[in-house]
């Protein structure tokens, strides 16, 4: 028989049978036993896996001393070497949910060990960790324990054995927010016609793409004296030095590049576009059409602006995920801020 997979269990003081609210301040401890829900959970794993022990921590202690609590807990995880960590279920207990989420994020981020937990959909812990852990959707009180544990155990088995995880509604977990491409049994046009017919007949229909929610960015304050300001040039128009030395992608960029432009008066001549989302002919003739270094340098000479920042930053915008774009923006923004840049000309295509 195959070796049993090892589960490490996390519970709070109440489910760890230490006590109620009055014991919420207790520091974490580890017991090589199946305590509270870990006992029933262990039974559900059958011959395939076993709970090797339970970590118990007071909810107040965790939330008020997160660093210390996590240091202890992570040490236990490292020593015990579980295949998977299970926390909760926390139902609608906010502090317990946040503790489960804190443990889940640390275990996934630092050790890349999968985590299964259970929470009521409105528990604040859900938003904290749902993208990293599998959060089984459970009732709002401990009365839902009997329903919660089998779902959590099923997911645990699948994860431990490396099996494919099904849709959230099939497996009972709260969507992690991953949009995965799969095959439908009908082509897209057929699905569109059926959806339209449902709408026209006043029948129920379900969109395949709920509209995204956008961040709102407050504009920075105006620069009061441009003649003293350092201005940087940043583009998502795919303008790079000839030969594309950093191999930035023509679509769906995974990186950005920065190039010293302190000694040139224009991009024309040394730069071209690798952007896959527009007609490149005119940009290749004159890349300053996309990223106007030529004009900025003129303004610098005329004293209209104080200085053009010595590095030019660039990436490709077409098909680039917002996740990557956000990362690039934070990284580039940090560099510019540290360099004392006052303003940025940011061009697309």
């Amino acid at each position: 028989m195959a070796k049993k997979f090892r589960v490490l269990y996390y519970v709070n003081q109440f489910f760890g049978q230490i006590g109620g609210e009055e014991k919420a301040g207790v520091a974490p401890t580890f017991e090589a036993k199946t305590l509270g829900p870990a006992l029933g959970f262990n039974g559900l794993l059958g011959d395939e896996g076993e709970v090797i022990g339970t970590i118990i921590c007071g909810d107040n202690y965790f939330n008020e001393n997160k660093e210390e609590a996590l240091e202890y807990i992570m040490n236990v995880v490292k020593e015990q070497k579980p295949d998977i960590v299970v926390a909760g279920p926390a139902f609608n207990a906010g502090r317990y949910g946040m503790a489960c989420a804190g443990v889940a994020n640390a275990v996934v981020d630092e050790l890349n060990i999968p985590v299964v937990t259970g929470m009521y959909v409105e528990n604040p812990g859900v938003e904290e960790c749902k993208s990293k852990a599998y959060v089984v959707s459970v009732a709002d009180s401990a009365g839902g324990m009997r329903e919660a544990l089998p779902k959590m155990a099923n997911l645990t088995k699948k994860l431990a054995k490396g099996e494919e995880i099904g849709l959230p509604e099939e497996e009972g977990y709260i969507p992690q927010g991953k949009r995965l491409t799969i095959f439908s049994d009908k082509r897209g046009s057929q699905r569109a016609v059926e959806m339209l017919l449902s709408r026209l007949n006043g029948e129920a229909f379900e969109t395949e793409l709920p509209m995204p929610v956008f961040d709102k960015v407050e504009p920075a304050k105006a620069i009061e004296d441009l003649s003293k300001a350092t201005i940087a040039l940043v583009t998502s128009g795919g303008i790079v030095p000839h030969g594309n030395p950093d191999r930035i992608q023509s679509a769906s960029a995974q990186k950005w590049g920065k190039y010293d432009v302190s000694n040139i008066d224009a991009l024309t001549g040394e730069y071209y576009t690798i952007h896959g989302g527009y007609d490149p002919v005119y940009a290749n003739e004159k890349p300053d059409r996309v990223a106007p270094l030529d004009l900025l340098k003129e303004f610098e000479k005329e004293g209209k602006i104080g200085k053009v920042y010595e590095f030019f930053y660039t990436t490709t915008g077409t098909g680039t995920s917002v996740g990557n774009a956000t990362k690039f923006g934070v990284e580039i923004g940090k560099e510019l801020k540290e360099a004392g840049v006052d303003g940025v000309i940011l061009t697309s295509t």
């Binding site: 991953k178 949009r179 699905r191 959806m195 995204p212 929610v213 956008f214 769906s252 680039t320 917002v322």
Partner: peptide, 25 residues
């Protein structure tokens, strides 16, 4: 949609509340 390698990014470059019926390919 352009949801990135991990599928975690917002899928479209724009949004409007009127778009209630969308087929994603």
């Amino acid at each position: 949609e352009c949801s990135g390698w991990d599928g975690m990014s917002q899928p479209l470059a724009d949004t409007t509340e009127e778009a209630v019926a969308v087929v994603s390919t």
